[in-house]
Every structure is written in structure tokens, then in C-alpha cells.
């Protein structure tokens, strides 16, 4: 009971601190708006994402097409909206995969310790030593490229840092008195892990999550650039941008609009992550 109260007041404090950070709050609003748009896309998109109008071709932003049309005459607004669904989904799902693996793995390694920890962390080292962007390229080449595999592949790579952070956190928490007290009171390991360790590590987890999402979205765009992304006619921000780069002088709006959308999202996620770090990290509360 006492814990919950303490926890809630901690989060409340954090929220108050976050509110002071105008940029982080702006980012939060922006991201929420974007998420809502992405969810509502099938109902609000003005056109079909694959319907071409070859006669029209690439046309600059106008009343009929707010964001213009691409070289095959497809409505760019619709494609950006559908793209945000894919890109955000890739970001969220891959990060969730990374989160699950990373937290569990790190917590177990840190908590059990000893030989098990040694072996588990060696495995992390192995995966760390793989040149990882390149490793994903190999993976997509080998396993083909369904979106699901893409999620899994990216998630499978991104969990490493998470595992390290959690392990470190658990190791340092283990030394602290309230855990030792809990052990003395006869709580099982699993109870301690669930009730004490993971809740206390929540700060770094949240921060790291907001910082993983942008790097995953960025990674998806690299794969698109290399031609290893999603299958047309679907669109993601990465694929829209990589097509846009090719014609940035002729049809600048095809790069600027998806580019701006991506950049704003990444800016927001990063600022929100920084803001959360400032808010959740008690050390900065001294100010």
C-alpha cells in the first residue's frame, strides 16, 4: 500500500516536472495527434493509397490534393497518412518486441547473477559485435520481406541495449536495503522481481523506449532506401522519402512533406524522451 502511494506521488512529481518542459509537452500533443490521425486513416483519407492517375502525374500541392500527387498521380496526403500507419506500427511493434526481450533478459541476468549472468551477457556481446545495420540487410535478404519479419528482425536487434540497461539497474537495486529487507522477509525471487525490481526500473525503460522508437523508424527508412523495405503499393515514410530524394529537385514536395512528417515525429519523440529523462531522473530534481 505504502509503495503504491509512494509510486504515484513519484509519477505525479515527474508529471509536474514534465509539464514545465514546454517542448516536451508540445511533442506529446503532436505525437498524440499523429497517432489519432494514423488510427483514423482508413476513414479520413481523401483517396485510395494505390489509385493512380497517370494522366495527372506529379502535381504540386493544390486544393484537390493538399500535398500534391506523386509521379504516378497518387494522392500524396493519403500516402503519407497510410505511411504513418506503417512507420508508427513498425516503430511501436519492434520497440515492444525489443522491450519484452530486453527487460526479461536483462532482469533475469541481473537478478540471477553469477554464471548465468556471465553466459547471458556474453551472448549480448556476440550480438553487439555483429555490424548490425548490415546484419539486418542480410536478414531481409535471407528471409524475404514480409512486414512481420521486418518487425521481428528489427526488434531482435534493438533489445540489446535495453537488456544491458535493465541488468545494470537490477544489479544496483539488488544492493539496496529495501530489496535485502524483502529477501529477509521471505519473498520469493519472482515476487521481488515483479514487485520491486521492475517497477523501480520503469524510469529508464520509459526513457529508452521513447528513444528506441525513432531509431527503429529511421532504420525502416534505411531499409527502404536500400530497396529492402515494404512491398509497393503500400507506403511507409521511409519509402516515400527514398522516392522523394530521387526527385527532390524536380518535385520537391514529394520529399519535403514526408520528410517533414518524419523529422517532426522523430524530433518529438526525442524531445519527449529527453523530457521524460529529466522528469523521471531524481538527480535532476535538485534544480
Amino acid at each position: 500500500m505504502q509503495e503504491i502511494e509512494q509510486g504515484s506521488s513519484l509519477t505525479h512529481d515527474a508529471y509536474l516536472r514534465l509539464k514545465k518542459n514546454k517542448l516536451a509537452m508540445l511533442s506529446l500533443y503532436l505525437l498524440s495527434a499523429l497517432l489519432i490521425l494514423a488510427v483514423l486513416t482508413p476513414w479520413i483519407a481523401p483517396y485510395s493509397y494505390e489509385q493512380q492517375d497517370l494522366e495527372l502525374g506529379a502535381s504540386p500541392p493544390a486544393v484537390a490534393h493538399w500535398f500534391g500527387t506523386d509521379v504516378l498521380g497518387r494522392d500524396q496526403l493519403t500516402r503519407v497518412l497510410y505511411g504513418s500507419r506503417i512507420s508508427l506500427a513498425v516503430g511501436l511493434v519492434a520497440t515492444f518486441v525489443a522491450l519484452c526481450i530486453g527487460v526479461l533478459y536483462g532482469a533475469i541476468a541481473g537478478f540471477v547473477g553469477g554464471r548465468v549472468d556471465q553466459v547471458m551477457m556474453r551472448l549480448v556481446d556476440v550480438l553487439y559485435a555483429l555490424p548490425f545495420a548490415i546484419f539486418i540487410i542480410l536478414l531481409t535478404v535471407v528471409f524475404g520481406r514480409s512486414i512481420l519479419l521486418l518487425f521481428l528482425a528489427i526488434g531482435a536487434v534493438e533489445w540489446l541495449t535495453m537488456a544491458r540497461i535493465i541488468r545494470g539497474q537490477v544489479l544496483s537495486l539488488k544492493q539496496q536495503e529495501f530489496i535485502q529487507a524483502a529477501t529477509a522477509m521471505g519473498q520469493t525471487r519472482w515476487q521481488i522481481l515483479r514487485k520491486h525490481l521492475i517497477p523501480n526500473a520503469i524510469g529508464p525503460i520509459v526513457i529508452y523506449t521513447t528513444l528506441t522508437i525513432p531509431s527503429v523508424i529511421l532504420l525502416e527508412s534505411f531499409l527502404s532506401f536500400l530497396g529492402l523495405g515494404i512491398q509497393p503499393p503500400q507506403s511507409s515514410w521511409g519509402s516515400l522519402i527514398s522516392y522523394g530524394v530521387e526527385t527532390m529537385e524536380e518535385y520537391p514536395w514529394l520529399l519535403v512533406i514526408p520528410g517533414l512528417t518524419l523529422s517532426l515525429t522523430l524530433f518529438s519523440l526525442n524531445f519527449l524522451g529527453d523530457g521524460l529523462r529529466d522528469a523521471l531522473d531524481p538527480r535532476t530534481s535538485k534544480d
Binding site: K20, P214, L218, S221, I241, V245, L266, N270, D274
Partner: peptide
């Protein structure tokens, strides 16, 4: 911290992680 003198330089430094290098380069 938390003034425009914080936000402007931080935004500038973030240019690189918000624009993929295959966009920034070309």
C-alpha cells in the same frame, strides 16, 4: 535549461538523427 537557448541548439544538433543520412547527403 528549458528556455529557447536550450531548445534551439538542441534542435540543431538533432538534425542528424531526424533526417536519414540518405536524405541529408543528397
Amino acid at each position: 535549461p528549458n528556455t529557447w537557448q536550450d531548445y534551439v541548439p538542441m534542435s540543431f544538433s538533432m538534425l542528424g538523427i531526424c533526417l536519414p543520412s540518405f536524405v541529408l547527403g543528397p
